[in-house]
């Protein structure tokens, strides 16, 4: 039995920031060093490291240090594929029920999932 992944909140939080989304998109192309990641971003290295820490805490990104270079890569298993599949179905339901609420001409009083 699979239930809602507890890490989803952390992932959404991690992805709610445009800088971190840009980092995830960059890593989607392949592994990169922290300096590769920092290059297109107009911010200090400590700020980049802070964003990276949030991405790692969410489980979306992993990094490992070899010598002086820290290499980051995406962790696609962060959300198991089955969970992605099922969350997609769940999200589908949420959207249908949003439209049911609109059809009934009302905002939801409460939304639980």
């Amino acid at each position: 039995m699979l239930n809602q992944s507890p890490s989803l909140d952390l992932m959404f939080q991690a992805l709610a920031d445009p800088t971190r989304r840009a980092m995830v998109e960059r890593l989607g192309l392949g592994p990169a060093s922290v300096s590769d990641l920092a290059r297109p971003l107009a911010m200090s290295m400590p700020a980049v490291m802070q964003h990276l820490q949030m991405l790692e805490a969410s489980g979306l990104v992993r990094s490992e240090k070899t010598g002086r270079v820290r290499t980051c890569r995406i962790a696609p298993e962060a959300l198991s594929l089955a969970e992605q599949w099922i969350d997609a179905r769940r999200t589908g339901w949420q959207r249908q029920l949003d439209r049911l609420g609109e059809y009934l001409g009302e905002p939801d009083l409460e939304r639980k999932s």
Partner: peptide, 22 residues
């Protein structure tokens, strides 16, 4: 095959007969 179950709960201001009718 992966088996899964989930529950979604919503509250609507409309009465059950109206929600059911939808």
């Amino acid at each position: 095959t992966v088996h899964a179950s989930f529950t979604i709960e919503r509250r609507f201001a409309a009465a059950p007969d109206r929600v059911f009718a939808a």
